[in-house]
C-alpha cells in the first residue's frame, strides 16, 4: 500500500544563497525516479516534507510552479534539520514526501483581479503562484495581477534575478519594497508591506487577495484589505503551524478542529474568523 511516510529520492541540482545573512538557500531538486515525477501532481500553495536520514524531516512550501522541471524549496536555517540541509551541495540526495495540503483558489480567481501580498521569506509559494499564473495558457484566465512583496532590506529579497525580469513584464504589476533602503538603488520603494498596499490601493471588487507573511504583517494587512473592499471570503492566507506528519494524524498543527496540514495550509479569512486564533 502507498505509504505517506515514505519519502522519494530527489537529487539536488542547484543551490542558491538568497540573502546577505546567508541563512536562506534555494534548492532545486530533480526526481531520481521518473515514476515518482509522473505521480507528483500539485498546485501552488501545497507543501512537502524534506527528509535527511538522521537529521529528520521538516515541511516546506513548494516554491516552483507545476510546469517547471525542478522542484524548488527556499529554506531558512533555524534548527537541526534546516542546518543539515544547508550543508548539502549539488549532487546530494534528499528525501521528499508530499504534496500535502490544499492550494490557492485558482478556480475562484478565474476572471478576477489577483492581488498578492507577501512579506519576508514566506514569499515561496506565492512565487510559485506568480510563475503559474504567468504561464500563457493560464494568464488569459485572470484579470490584473498585482504583487506586493517586501523584505527588511534589499539583500533579503528572494529570487532577485527573477524579480528583476518580472519587473519588466507588462502582464504583471510587481511592487517591491523594503523596510530600509540604506542608500541602495533597488528596489524603488521604502516602506512596510501594509503601508505600501494602502498606497497602491488595488480595488477589492471582483478581486482575490493572497496573503503570506509573518504574523505581524498579517495583523496589519487585514485592516487595509478590508478598507479596500476585500470581503473576508476573498482574502486567502497560508498558515505555517508546527507539523510532524502532514496528513492530519499527529495532531500538532491544529487550529481548533481544523488541521493546517490537511484542511489548509490555505484558508480564507472568512474561514479563519470562525476558528480560534491558534496560528
Amino acid at each position: 500500500m502507498n505509504n505517506p511516510y515514505l519519502p522519494v529520492p530527489m537529487r539536488i541540482e542547484k543551490v542558491v544563497i538568497e540573502n546577505d545573512a546567508r541563512d536562506l538557500k534555494t534548492f532545486d531538486l530533480a526526481f531520481v525516479n521518473e515514476s515518482d515525477w509522473q505521480n507528483f501532481k500539485f498546485l501552488p500553495g501545497q507543501f512537502a516534507f524534506l527528509s535527511i536520514p538522521g537529521a529528520g524531516e521538516a515541511p516546506f512550501g513548494i516554491a516552483s510552479a507545476p510546469h517547471e522541471p525542478l522542484v524548488k524549496f527556499t529554506v531558512k536555517r533555524v534548527g537541526v534539520f534546516t542546518t543539515a540541509l544547508h550543508e548539502l551541495e549539488p549532487g546530494a540526495t534528499v528525501g521528499m514526501r508530499g504534496p500535502w495540503g490544499n492550494f490557492y483558489p485558482f478556480e475562484l480567481m478565474q476572471g478576477k483581479d489577483v492581488v498578492i501580498v507577501s512579506g519576508g521569506f514566506s514569499f515561496t509559494t506565492l512565487r510559485a503562484t506568480i510563475a503559474h499564473l504567468l504561464l500563457p495558457e493560464n494568464r488569459k484566465n485572470y484579470g490584473r495581477i498585482l504583487a506586493i512583496y517586501g523584505a527588511r532590506s534589499p539583500g533579503e529579497l528572494l529570487y532577485k534575478e527573477e524579480l528583476k525580469e518580472w519587473e519588466k513584464r507588462s502582464d504583471l504589476e510587481l511592487v517591491l519594497c523594503v523596510d530600509r533602503l540604506n542608500g541602495a538603488s533597488w528596489p524603488q520603494r521604502e516602506g512596510l508591506v501594509p503601508n505600501v498596499l494602502k498606497a497602491v490601493a488595488p480595488k477589492g471588487e471582483n478581486a482575490i487577495a493572497l496573503v503570506c507573511g509573518p504574523p505581524v504583517m498579517l495583523r496589519y494587512t487585514h485592516p487595509v484589505l478590508e478598507e479596500l473592499g476585500f470581503a473576508p471570503e476573498n482574502v486567502f492566507l497560508s498558515l505555517e503551524n508546527r507539523m510532524k506528519c502532514g496528513i492530519g494524524k499527529c495532531g500538532h498543527c491544529n487550529v481548533g478542529p481544523k488541521y493546517v496540514c490537511k484542511d489548509g495550509p490555505v484558508f480564507s479569512y472568512a474561514q479563519l474568523l470562525k476558528l480560534p486564533p491558534e496560528y
Binding site: 511516510y5 536520514p53 538522521g54 537529521a55 529528520g56 524531516e57 510532524k244 506528519c245 494524524k249 499527529c250 495532531g251 500538532h252
Partner: peptide, 14 residues
C-alpha cells in the same frame, strides 16, 4: 493519538 517523529541513530544505523 498525537505523535512526534524523530530519527534515532544507533551504531551507524538510522
Amino acid at each position: 493519538h498525537c505523535f512526534d517523529v524523530t530519527d534515532e541513530t544507533v551504531r551507524g544505523r538510522t
